[in-house]
Design a protein around this nucleic acid. Sequence first.
DNA 1: GAGTGGTCTAGACCACTCA
DNA 2: GAGTGGTCTAGACCACTCA
Lengths: 238, 238
Amino acid sequence: MDRSSPVPLYYQLARQLEAAVQAGELAPGTRLENELELAERCGLSRPTVRQAIQHLVDRGLLVRKRGVGTQVVLSEIRRPIELTSLHDDLAAAGKDPRTEVLELGPAPADDLVAKELGVPPGTEVTRIRRTRYTGDEPLALLTNYLPRDLIDLGVDDLTRHGLYELLRGSGVNLRVANQSIGARAATSAEARRLDERRGVPVLTMTRTAFDDKGGAVEYGCHVYRADRYSYSLTLVER
Amino acid sequence: MDRSSPVPLYYQLARQLEAAVQAGELAPGTRLENELELAERCGLSRPTVRQAIQHLVDRGLLVRKRGVGTQVVLSEIRRPIELTSLHDDLAAAGKDPRTEVLELGPAPADDLVAKELGVPPGTEVTRIRRTRYTGDEPLALLTNYLPRDLIDLGVDDLTRHGLYELLRGSGVNLRVANQSIGARAATSAEARRLDERRGVPVLTMTRTAFDDKGGAVEYGCHVYRADRYSYSLTLVER
DNA sequence: GAGTGGTCTAGACCACTCA
DNA sequence: GAGTGGTCTAGACCACTCA
């Protein structure tokens, strides 16, 4: 533990435990020391140790049970649930995401967009339409609406970076998102842009994301090729 | 605050705050008192107040910002993310879920099922196949695999209750689930049972759920009519 | 009955935000 | 500089689990 570091002690401990799990030093199913022992050994107070453990429980790495103890989960958990964008996910998976920006500019909000963004219908908002590729294969059609004045975006930015990355970089703190995931048949226009036949099943996702203050910062409608993409998530019961 | 109640104080406070938000007494965007004031007014310590607030932040009801304060989120958040089953979701939405049990019995685990449940291939597991209706309309085809000896199920139980409800009722504490959601065309058999045409888009979900101890307790492959069902969830960044 | 995590207290100092 | 939440301490008592 490095007390001179600006990194919180609980976070330092959490990272150490996580590293030990990933290195196999703490095998799946292993019981951790109890909280008091761990606290003493690390020179920390019990609440700080609990905060570190809670962090990993929230992420699905550890399980706790009163009267029993804390264990490393038996099974590999794929991914903690996070507010990520497709671009980040693909990049993390080494899939070489590419983006073609089809449109970037102001557009009046229709009733649905207005409702989701919490602005009066007809308000000018920024509309972004992109095609996302992995390598040379089209993977998804992305349409997003943002309040104007939230962020000043250029086509170059969107070509090189994910939208969420750009939002975070300009000081927007994304906190909550409502998502709805469904399926339907591709329209002819969608099929053409996805290099598919009309009527093939596509996966759809609509998402409204909110920042720090609870204001809507983005509404998106995405259409994915179902043969190349599925949406994975890990749920943790609290 | 009722100190004689077995309900933890932090939880009592969280429920009161939640009720105040839902009753409109704390309008969206309202700033809460600061933590010390709230603690004093409720006769609680600050860590307890923080625990209550953290609970609601995790559920997406409040947002906190250092140096600024705690606010009620501006927008209505649909649903906190939870480990629920389709049956519970439908019942909660007043949709009158009905279940037809097509199969309930032992079956050897194929490679995929064995991998997901963490048992050797060929091990006998319990296989459940059901059709879920809302009213008279077929909505989904549900196939689930459970380790034998985990729970003793009857057809009656499954007809009247959701699987997760039954698992919880018999002492299984579900904690983490890996889900993957996709889309594809219905096979002829699926289309027939869903009262649809072959090749229509369906939404698919596969899920592996883990309990307290991190052992796999259920692997499910579900197929939904895409015109009647979409998967909604709320993500909260931690 | 021994051991565990769950809850709770009453403080402290700090980093951050904003006027 | 005033006010906020973030982190941290050093304890306490309890409910629960399991042998």
